Amino acid sequence: MMLKVVEAREGSWTVLHVSGELDLVSSPVVRQRVHDAVAAGDRDVVLDLSGVHFCDSSGVGVLVAARRLMRSCRGRLRLVLPAHGAEDGSHVNRVLAALGVRRLFEVYADAVAAADDEARPLSA
Rank of each mutant, 00 (worst) to 15 (best):
L99H: 07
A124C: 12
G51L: 14
D48T: 03
E10Y: 01
V25H: 09
R94I: 02
L96F: 14
A111Y: 02
A83Y: 15
S26P: 12
A97D: 10
V18H: 04
K4M: 07
Q32M: 10
A83D: 14
E7R: 04
R43G: 06
L96Y: 14
A124D: 14
S58N: 05
M2P: 12
L104H: 15
E106P: 00
V45W: 02
L22P: 08
L99A: 15
E10F: 01
V30R: 10
A39Q: 14
G51S: 09
N93G: 10
S90A: 08
E106Q: 14
S90H: 14
T14N: 05
V46E: 12
A8W: 03
Y108A: 01
G89D: 13
M70N: 09
P82Y: 10
L79F: 10
L22W: 04
A98D: 06
V46P: 08
R103V: 06
Q32H: 09
V62T: 15
V15N: 09
V107E: 08
L16G: 09
E7A: 11
V38N: 13
G61F: 11
L47K: 01
V64T: 11
V112S: 11
D42F: 00
V92E: 05
A65E: 14
F54P: 10
K4T: 14
A40R: 13
V60G: 07
